[in-house]
Structure formats: structure tokens, C-alpha cells
Design a protein around this nucleic acid. Structure first.
Lengths: 196, 196
DNA sequence: GTCTATATTACGATAGAC
DNA sequence: GTCTATCGTAATATAGAC
């Protein structure tokens, strides 16, 4: 902001290019050569900004995880009836997923071959456990159907939510943001079927 | 069957080893060295059975796709009310996913870097279109709620179904097979919430 | 901050013996 | 059917000039 921006790379701007390529080709399927072509600079210039491929992955999944965990600290996720907290967190997770789409996409595809990947998987498990606890509370209130296992229901709910990354592409004006989150919550909690 | 089985590899038995490693490390993250270690034979012995890594991928995703498409040819998927056909196909897709878990897992993770991967993605899209057509018929019958877009609902439904591969591990006796399929269908069509 | 050139390692695949 | 040895290529990463 102090001086006029140059059109040269910083770790941040390079990250957005890298994440796009990672999602197109897969992290393992992306070489530094691929990244350098996509960024329009040489391989060694990339090493000037980051220590290597894995640092780009770490920065990317960190951004995704920070966005997801931030939802759990928002006020509506911590007050009121449990079922309402669950619905809020579900809706906000969908929104974070849309807002940080490439970063969350990459996070959800991490396998576990490197230390960074295993760390990301561990933090994801922490997040999932926080959600499962919320769901248990809602079940204890009698607000979730009692004929399904809560852990299973949690997995299916967030399996549905996370599947958004497979097809969702943002509209220029973000017009679909609220509507899509509403639909996911409605379908998950009230079902596909016409009310009898 | 004619002679006593030797404990040597055929393309089939090698495939089961390869698919397991592909799912653990990702297809791109798996080298022929990894496969040879896991199979207990040398790299060049693998080339005796298959032409290369990509043939193993092709055989694996073919098996998954054949299982999924076979569901669409079963009698209950082609008779009766559309909503019942959709529920049947959903339930059977869950069962195929469980029965052919490693193969379907690999299919659902394919990216598109090679010709084989792009072919697999194309056949997956064909399958998804067949499902979407079934859903449209059920909506036309008035059996699906009219306040959500059918294409979106189809994506979310099968996003939920496909997410099984992220955590499901079969029990030795297959005791959970029918129960899990029932739960998925119940949640998807009737929702998580306690009936008011 | 970016480049060319290169070191070093790992990869997919093949040759040829047993 | 399996092996050891190896080829040619492509990978990550570094050195050093501009």
C-alpha cells in the first residue's frame, strides 16, 4: 500500500497460482516446472519466494483450516439450542468452502504422504470431532432423529457439504452464496422428499 | 481351477495390491518401486503382467464403473414409480461402493492428467446424467420437494453417497451392509431432523 | 527478483540372464 | 515368472550471474 504495486510475485500471489495448478493436476501430479510455466517465471525464481513445493501446500491448507476453525469461534456457534448451532455451523462451513474454494478443495484432497499432509489430516480430524460433539448435543436435546447413529449422520452431513468442492464454481457476483447454503441445510435437515 | 494355484501373480491379483497402494499414496504419488515393494516382486516383474502403471489404473476404474452401471440395468431401477427407482439406485450404489470399495475409491479420486483418467471422468459424467434423469422424473411426479433445484439436489445426494469412501471400512462379516444403505437413504430422503 | 546452467536423485520402462 | 542391471527422462533443488 505504501508504494505502487509491482506485478512481481510475493509468497501470497504465488500461492494463488500454485493452488490452482495443484487442484487441476493434483499435488503429486504437479511439478515445479508446471508451477513455473503457470506463474510465468522460472523454477529458481519460485525458490526465491518459498523453500519448495511443500511450503506452498502448507500455506494453502493452513488458510483453509483457519477459515473452517474460525467458524467454531463465531458467536452463534456457541449460544442457543444445539440444533441451531449445528445448522449455523453447517451453513457457515458451506460459505467458507465457497469463499476459500481452491484452498479447501486442496485440503480435502490431501492424502498423507508427507509431514505437512499428515499434519493437515490431523487438524481436519480435530475439526470433525468438534462438529460431532455439536451433533451429539443436538441429539441429546431430542432434536435429531433417534433411529440413526449420530457419528454416522455427522459423517454423511459433512460428506455432503464437502462434496461441493467437486462441482461448485463461484458466480462473478456471488449471487448464489446464500441460496446454496440454505439449500444444503434444508436438504440435510428436512430431506429430499415432499412432505407427506 | 485345473491345476493347483501357485502363489504367483496374475494381472488380477496384482491389481488388488496396486489399488490398495494407489489409495494409500494417491495414483500420482505411487511409483513402480512402491508397487514392487508392496507386491514383493521386482519392478520388471510387474511389467511382465501389465504394460505399465496406467494399465493398472484402467483395470481398476473399469471394475468400479462396471459395478455402478450394472445397477442401472437391474429390474427395480427400470420399473415402478420414479421416486422408488431413485431410492433403489441410491441404495444399490451405496452397496456397490461398499462391495468394490478400493476400486470406487480410486475412481472418485481420478483427476484427468492422462487419457485413461479423462476417459474415466467421462464415464462418471455419463453415470451422473443417468441419475439426474431419474431424479427429474421423480420431481415431475411431485415426489421430490419443489423448493430446491433438482440438479443441485442430485449432486448433493450423490456427494453424500460418494463420501462413504472417505471413512467406510468393511466389517469382516459384512454385517453393516444393509443397515448403512438404509441409513443413507433415510437421511437423504427424510432428513436429519426429528419429525415435528 | 529473475534468470541460465547444473547437481543429484527418482522415475518409468527395457534388456537379457536364469 | 522373476531377477539384476541399466537406459533415458524428468523431478527437486542449488549456484551464481545480472
Amino acid at each position: 500500500m505504501t508504494t505502487a504495486r509491482r506485478d512481481t510475485y510475493t509468497p501470497e500471489t504465488l500461492l494463488s497460482v500454485a493452488v490452482r495448478v495443484f487442484n487441476e493436476r493434483g499435488y503429486d501430479g504437479t511439478s515445479m516446472e508446471h508451477l513455473s510455466k503457470a506463474a510465468g517465471i522460472s523454477k529458481s525464481s519460485i525458490y526465491h519466494h518459498v523453500t519448495g513445493k511443500e511450503e506452498l501446500l502448507r500455506r494453502a491448507v493452513s488458510r483453509a483450516l483457519d477459515g473452517l476453525f474460525a467458524v467454531l469461534d463465531e458467536a452463534p456457534a456457541n449460544q442457543g439450542r444445539a440444533i441451531e448451532r449445528v445448522e449455523y455451523v453447517t451453513r457457515r462451513t458451506v460459505e467458507v468452502l465457497m469463499d476459500e474454494l481452491p484452498y479447501v478443495t486442496l485440503l480435502l484432497r490431501v492424502r498423507g504422504n508427507t509431514r505437512t499432509e499428515r499434519w493437515a489430516l490431523e487438524r481436519r480430524r480435530d475439526f470433525d470431532h468438534r462438529i460431532a460433539d455439536l451433533m451429539k448435543a443436538a441429539a441429546a436435546d431430542g432434536d435429531l432423529r433417534s433411529d440413526v447413529d449420530i457419528k454416522l449422520a455427522t459423517r454423511l452431513l459433512f460428506g455432503m457439504v464437502n462434496s461441493l468442492v467437486e462441482w461448485y464454481r463461484p458466480l462473478p457476483d456471488g449471487a448464489d452464496r446464500r441460496q446454496l447454503a440454505d439449500t444444503v441445510v434444508r436438504l440435510a435437515f428436512d430431506g429430499l422428499r415432499t412432505a407427506p
